[in-house]
């Protein structure tokens, strides 16, 4: 069964949560923008929703955002690549936890998600399609995109996921 949420509702949910958690956890203000995808050195952190809701959320952003976020969370300037990976994963875990809570309020479906992943560059799994892309500028003009991917098929072969109803847009 597909979960019906309006595209607008989903966008608001993602946008408010990302901005609030990024400010509280990472000390960075993100503003929605129409900027093109970050073009420099990019990192991506992602999480797969695998129970209740089938979807994958990715945050692709300039490396400098992830470094600043890690410095803020660790309260120190010198951070290693491993620190950046570990703290970016923890930050995104909190983002997705809050999104899951808002999804629950809207759908009454208690979703669960797996351990966060992290990679250099953009993340484009073959078995998912892009459904929603939100672009942001950081307070030091960095670029970031929050991307909602939905699976082409679930493991059971049934098309099930967090989908939107165009009539509700």
């Amino acid at each position: 069964m597909d979960t019906v949420v309006s595209r607008k509702e989903l966008e608001t949910m993602f946008n408010e949560t990302l901005q609030e958690v990024t400010r509280r956890v990472g000390g960075i203000r993100l503003s929605q923008s129409s900027a093109p995808p970050p073009a420099g050195e990019v990192y991506t952190v992602y999480i797969t929703f695998e129970r209740g809701v089938y979807a994958r959320l990715c945050l692709s952003a300039d490396k400098s955002i992830f470094i600043r976020l890690t410095q803020y969370m660790m309260r120190r300037e010198d951070v290693t690549e491993q620190d950046v990976e570990d703290f970016s994963k923890e930050y995104f875990n909190v983002v997705c936890g809050h999104i899951a809570a808002k999804l629950f309020q809207a759908t009454k479906i208690a979703s669960r998600f797996g351990a966060p992943g992290f990679c250099s560059g953009r993340y484009q799994p073959a078995d998912y399609e892009e459904h929603l892309v939100l672009s942001y500028s950081g307070d030091q003009s960095e670029g970031a995109q929050l991307i909602h991917l939905r699976p082409l098929e679930t493991p059971a072969g049934e098309l099930t996921g967090l989908r939107t109803d165009p009539s509700l847009s």
Binding site: G97, H98, A101
Partner: peptide, 9 residues
Amino acid sequence: ISSLDYEDT
């Protein structure tokens, strides 16, 4: 401690 704040949890 969790980022998932569900009433049932």
